[in-house]
Design a protein around this nucleic acid. Structure first.
Lengths: 192, 192
DNA sequence: TGCTAAGTGGAGGGAACCTCCGTATAATAG
DNA sequence: CTATTATACGGAGGTTCCCTCCACTTAGCA
């Protein structure tokens, strides 16, 4: 549980701007450090964010709260990409951009998967709610593309999951390898 | 890597009896504490084994070496049970006893799964060799029972894995629940 | 501008991992 | 049976990291 989850304080005041800014910086610092792959200390996150360790603990009372918040944020970003690309892009372009974002999410997730599993055990709702949110995102983009006639009708969200999951099982992929594999997946999705 | 892996010292002397005894006690203490489910410190393992922390570190240079050694030992015990039951018991009784041992192994594994995953990442051969060893054990008992005509011919080792894996996904099972589920599995295996 | 509740930050406590080295002893040769 | 010696033991203490406490700072409002 973090203080960000209430946009107002206990007196009904909106949260301070500097507090919101620090919260965002902490999340971004944590994400970057988790993705760098070395063991990430709380001290390192606070330093990277440019705040004190006490500030970090004010926003995230335990280490596992950081892990959970980063993950929630990542899921939310994927969902936001889904909504944005459906609004703003041609359907084929939408699924292309979305797939890249989804793969980035999945690769990022792998970097702190052990700790994330501990977060799921502690808070099973996190796992189920996130999966539901992602299902909605994948479904939205896929079905929009199918209605537009640019993606085969017989594909399901689970199959998209399966394809992305398979490619993310590989050892660390280079950007080029990612792009190539996504291209292959997209070729498979395309209406012939 | 632990000192137990050579039955002699560098001078060719057999390993000391007290050292072998301490090694076994440390493994047993670690297994018991992992199964009790609370976070297990190295200090607690050494205390439970009745040795000093320096002795523990002489046998297991890092914490992850304890995890790996307990797991290797568990796998070896399952394999030994397979060989013993095939030798000493009637085929139906053999698969019954083996299945109990296999389920106990799988439940025990869950208790330190996060740390075990880290061991697998560090040493992928551990995972593949253990899986191979277990495959051999399951295959031995299953095929012996099939040849004896007491278990259906159409079952594979993978299906045994699947059944045991499913039941071990449950939240903590009581001994009664385990026995009941194993009974159900055995009913499914039985030649009709 | 003053007030105050929210926010900050870093020193320090405590837990756990791991090392170092003085001491103990198992096993062997004579 | 005794002396030797290489192996083994064990616990104090160093280090790292998680987390707390509380004095100090400041954003936002009246």
């Amino acid at each position: 549980m973090t203080i960000q989850e209430s946009a107002t304080t206990s007196e009904g005041r909106p949260q301070r701007a500097d507090a919101r800014r620090n919260h965002e910086r902490l999340l971004e610092a944590a994400r970057e450090l988790f993705e760098e792959g070395a063991d990430t200390s709380m001290e390192a996150i606070a330093k990277r964010a440019g705040v004190g360790i006490g500030t970090l603990y004010r926003h995230f009372p335990k280490r596992i709260d950081v892990v959970e918040a980063v993950y929630r944020d990542d899921v939310e970003q994927v969902a936001n990409v889904a909504e944005r690309v459906v609004d703003e892009l041609e359907p084929w372009e939408a699924i292309d951009v979305f797939l890249h974002a989804f793969v980035n999410y999945a690769l990022g997730k792998r970097r702190f998967l052990n700790e994330l599993r501990e977060a799921f055990e502690k808070n099973p709702e996190l796992k189920s709610a996130s999966r539901e949110r992602l299902d909605g995102a994948v479904g939205l983009v896929l079905q929009t593309a199918q209605r537009a006639g640019v993606v085969r009708d017989d594909l399901t969200s689970d199959e998209i999951y399966g394809l992305v999951g398979s490619m993310c099982m590989s050892a660390l992929l280079t950007t080029e390898q990612c792009d190539r594999l996504i291209g292959l997946i997209l070729d498979g999705l395309r209406v012939r």
